[in-house]
Design a protein around this nucleic acid. Structure first.
Lengths: 156, 156
DNA sequence: CTTATATAGGACTATTTTAGTACTATATAA
DNA sequence: TTATATAGTACTAAAATAGTCCTATATAAG
C-alpha cells in the first residue's frame, strides 16, 4: 500500500483546520468538534505535533495550540516525520545494523536515491497548499537522467 | 516511517539478482542461495511478481522464473504495487467510502496530488537503475509552482 | 509411463505495528 | 483557590505483516 498512518492523516486534517485561523489558539476540544476526530486521538496528535515544534502549546485556562510557523513554512514531510518518525522506505534507511544482509547489499544506495526522491516530493507540499483548494490535475516530478548513459543524474 | 514492507524490499533484491542474468531461468532455490532470503519467503515473493506479470514462470524440471520485460521496462512503482497492492498515501485514495469524513474532507484532493508526486518518483526508477552501481548523490525532484501565486502548478 | 523437480494456490499462525484509551502531573487564567 | 487545558506515560485492543506449510499441477528426462 505504501501509505501514511491514520494518525498522520488526522494530523493533516487538524493542521489544515488550524491553518485556517493561524492567529488563534485552538483547544483540543474545539478541534474535535470541528473535525469529527475523537478527542483522545486529537489530543495524541496535537502532542506529537507540539513536540516536533510544528505547533506551539499554551497550557491552562484559555490555552490551546497554534502554528509555530507560517503555513507555507511547514511541509508534509515534517508532519509525517513528527507522527511516524524518520521517513525511510526500507529498514536500513532509518536504523542501520538491523538487516543481516546489509554488508552484502547491492541496492541500499539505490533505495537511498528513491528515498530522497520521495522525500523531496513530500517536502515540496506545505500547509499553505493543503489549505488552498485544489486547482491542479497533475504534478510534474522529474527524475533527471544523463543524456549519454540514461543513468539517473548525478548531483551533489 | 512511511516505508515499504519487507516483502517488497526482498522483491527488489530478488529482481536485482535476476536482472543480472536476464536471459536465464532462476529457480526459487537458486535465489535463496544467492540472496540469503529464506526459501518460503522467496517463493512467496516470486509468486506475487509472477502474478503481476513482472516475471514469467516455467514449471517443472529445469523450470524457474525470468523477467517478463527488459530491466529498464519494470519500475519500482510496479514492484511495490505487485506486492502491496495499489499505492495510495491515505485510505480514501485506494478504497473510497471507508472514511466517515470523506464527504466533508477538504484535503482529499491535495492528498491525491501528493500521491501522484510520490508515484511519479517511484515510477522513474527502473530495475536497470537498481542493477547499476550508485553513482549519484542526489535526485532532483521538482514540484513546479506558478510564479504569480506560488501555488502548485496546474498541468493536465 | 514414471519419477524427480519446480511452480500455483491457498490456508494458517505468530509477530509486529498501529490505533485508541486512560490516568496522573503540571501549568495558567480568573 | 478553582476550573481548564496541555504533558507525559502506560496500557489494551485491533489490524496488518511476515513467515510457514500443505496440496495440486505442470514439465523434462529417463
Amino acid at each position: 500500500m505504501l501509505r501514511v498512518s491514520k494518525l498522520t492523516d488526522y494530523a493533516t486534517v487538524i493542521l489544515t483546520h488550524i491553518a485556517h485561523q493561524p492567529d488563534e489558539l485552538h483547544a483540543a476540544s474545539d478541534i474535535t468538534q470541528a473535525t469529527g476526530v475523537a478527542l483522545p486521538t486529537v489530543s495524541k496528535v496535537l502532542k506529537f505535533l507540539s513536540k516536533a515544534n510544528i505547533l506551539t502549546s499554551h497550557r491552562g485556562s484559555k490555552g490551546g495550540y497554534a502554528l509555530a510557523n507560517k503555513p507555507n513554512e511547514t511541509n508534509v514531510a515534517e508532519v509525517i516525520t513528527a507522527i511516524e518518525g524518520p521517513i525511510g522506505m526500507t529498514e536500513c534507511t532509518t536504523s542501520e545494523g538491523t538487516c543481516e544482509q546489509e554488508s552484502s547489499c547491492e541496492i541500499k544506495g539505490n533505495w537511498n536515491l528513491i528515498n530522497r526522491a520521495v522525500y523531496t516530493a513530500l517536502e515540496a507540499v506545505t500547509l499553505a497548499d493543503m489549505v488552498a483548494p485544489v486547482r491542479q490535475q497533475a504534478v510534474n516530478v522529474v527524475m533527471p537522467r544523463t543524456k549519454e548513459t540514461n543513468e539517473l543524474k548525478v548531483e551533489s
